[in-house]
Write a protein that binds this DNA or RNA. Structure first.
Lengths: 325, 325
DNA sequence: GCGGCCATTGTTAACGGTCACAACAGGCGC
DNA sequence: GCGCCTGTTGTGACCGTTAACAATGGCCGC
């Protein structure tokens, strides 16, 4: 910076002013400084700046396995929006979804002096691990349920209702459900949407099967569903589990949608090419990420966040659902 | 730090020594300082440290869509290994795979003064965008082909050979190939492995079909393959495209593996539950990530990297392949 | 023509660590 | 017993930037 100042024939403070776009700098000086910056290829030192401003311009992201479609999509949205807002993104992948591992991940980010933390781990068990942090630094939790640090969410309940209603409308007497793991917000919300719609239609409520999002757990749930002869429609809480169902039914010689209809949730890039192409509910994860950034930046700046409602998911009807015969 | 020093009754310099685990500190003093640190909940300021050491302890990662299975897995490995090595990971997702977008992403990371950059974008077109950077800061490129900044790679050629050989061994006269996008290292390497094995077996070499990794491109390639009546075996460069093939064949009433055998590459969590369960080649992406960290940390420290050979992928035989009839 | 105000620019002191070097003590060899 | 060396601790400067405040000059109003 000293070199730039010398080349432009001004003081280092004036250079700083130009760099930060402050007013009270004459146009001629501003231009001279900018030329000097370009000529020397000067880059401000973020550490020195952070040292005095107490802002690292870095956001921490803690995420469950980024191999999952949802978190990965959210991360993409976060990365893009953060960059546009001038922030860096420091990512830590959780090696397990529990308090211990959550604490250690957040601790790591706090050591980096991040200006805010975004948590992509919509699980009840981590909420308490996170609670203490929110007092230290702004914190946003994707899909969080309770008011506190909740934010950016998709209308899970609405999506689940639409999916269930779709099956009911086709004429199915009721709809079975393979839920995601206990304590996961999305899983709980989808159960509740499914339940609401069933009640509204005065349909009998079958026992809920519990999966863990994986195709294998869907497959296992499928095997158990086959033991009940009266099931004609299943709503799975995500597409991977829905795939497991398709596989289980296929193996048992049950036709989808001939004998059983299946609906998923997420709309993976793969889902359109399943056998049969899967009817599902599409979610805009990138938008979730963008909203996280908007929210946390607002909280850091102390401005009011752009209050946006829930993101509405979109039902995609393909070939895995039909009227019962 | 001043507070810690005062509480422990030593100078700030001694505190610094304890924090950095330097020798020449008596046990009693060390213990006193550590107690003071714990008592005050003191955390060193990374910016101040970086300002003088010129090391931010942050690694930059530029990745193509983290929604893809490979990059996501590599990122997980990177995140975990980096944390263990005491580094932070700053991630930027590429919005397009071209020079322009690559330059801007790397520029963003350089502004963060990262100590090194890892590029997960194994595409020829970005190599040149990256070339200049390597002089500024250590840079590691996943799966890179040419010696320069290459590193951590999976034996793509070997994997492709094994896949092709598997089909040949089953008795197929030859094997068709749906490759990944032109200029992608993995795609090129898999073509070359496939070709090598075909030549070794004196099998005729069918025209190569080009996909873009997506299920849809696989589906379209499948439609074209159906126009050639003599194809009995196809090797797809990834599982998503293989899924597209399965779909196309299914629609056309061709049985897999009865009429046509299909092999993929990657082993997605879903692949085991495809219709039929997909024979494929499993890759250990997390290991790729870990090696990236080992390599770049070594390069930063100026020590010699732990020279490890290529990672050997593993063939997983399921139900999508059989002898021709 | 002079005082006061505003816009522009410069000067100095932080921010919180580490580095270089000095100071001090104790043990050893001669 | 003296000097030297080694191991431990303290002192000041410095990293590169922004904050706070001082200084300068031009314009306006009276």
């Amino acid at each position: 910076m000293r070199d730039v100042a010398r080349l432009a024939g001004v003081s280092h403070q004036t250079v700083s002013r130009v760099l930060n776009g402050l007013p009270n700098v004459s146009d001629s000086v501003r231009e001279r400084v900018e030329r000097a910056v370009a000529q020397l290829g000067y880059r401000p030192n973020v550490s020195a700046r952070a040292l005095i401003t107490k802002r690292t311009m870095t956001l921490g992201v803690v995420s469950v396995s980024t191999q999952q479609y949802g978190p990965a999509g959210t991360l993409t949205g976060i990365s893009e929006a953060a960059r546009r807002a001038g922030y860096f993104v420091s990512v830590t992948v959780l090696d397990a979804v529990d308090r211990q591992s959550m604490r250690s991940a957040i601790d790591h980010l706090l050591a980096a002096a991040v200006d805010g933390v975004i948590v992509i781990a919509p699980v009840g068990s981590v909420v308490e691990a996170v609670a203490g942090v929110a007092r230290t630094v702004p914190l946003v939790m994707v899909e969080a349920r309770d008011g506190e640090q909740s934010v950016a969410g998709i209308d899970q309940v609405g999506g689940a209702r639409t999916a269930t209603r779709h099956l009911l409308d086709l004429g199915h007497r009721t709809v079975a459900h393979v839920r995601g793991p206990i304590n996961w917000f999305e899983a709980d919300a989808r159960v509740s949407g499914w339940l609401t719609e069933l009640m509204a239609a005065h349909a009998p409520v079958p026992e809920v099967l519990v999966g863990d999002w994986s195709p294998r757990s869907g497959y296992e749930a499928g095997r158990r569903i086959l033991e009940r002869s009266d099931v004609t429609a299943v709503f799975a809480a995500n597409d991977q589990m829905a795939l497991g169902l398709l596989r289980a039914f296929e193996e048992a010689g049950r036709s989808v949608p001939g004998d059983i209809s299946v609906v998923g949730f997420d709309d993976l890039p793969e889902s359109e090419f399943f056998h049969p192409p899967l009817t599902t509910v599409r979610q805009d994860f990138a938008e979730v990420g963008r909203r996280c950034i908007a929210e946390i930046v607002a909280r850091i700046d102390g401005t009011s966040p752009p209050s946006a409602g829930l993101i509405v998911p979109e039902m995609v009807v393909r070939d895995s659902t039909a009227a019962p015969r």
